[in-house]
Amino acid sequence: MPKRLTKWLLTAVLLYGCTTAQERKFKQYYLQGQLLYEKHCSNCHQPNGSGLKNLYPPLALSDFLKNNPEKTLCLMRHGLTGEVVVNNITFNQPMPGIPSLTDLEIAEIATYIYNSWGNKRGLVEVQEAERVLRSCIE
């Protein structure tokens, strides 16, 4: 029994050691992104990303998020007004932007929402966010 435990422990340590720098970075972004999401976004989009009826669009398995990766980063900072169609439902409730969010914070939120509730995209790097955010049309 103790032998088995040692073996298990050894495997666990080895596995942890094998976590790449990239994976650790992903975890860091993801956890930080979750905190920011709960502070700035989840009031409307809900903690589980479901949105609220036809008022606030869902982020979970959202075709808008999937098809508009650049626009999604921009609207976090600059907001969005007018009609927007998400999963075949038309929404029209203005979303205020949060100009105080840094490039890194936007990358972290993006990493969180793009890898939660069934969404799977992987890490959104700060360099990518920087590039996209520079080119946003205000």
Binding site: N43, C44, Q46, L52, K53, L55, Y56, P94, P96
Partner: peptide, 15 residues
Amino acid sequence: TSCRTICPIMKTQML
């Protein structure tokens, strides 16, 4: 209606 702080949570609960 344009409130983004506590109102959305209130409306979720009022539903």
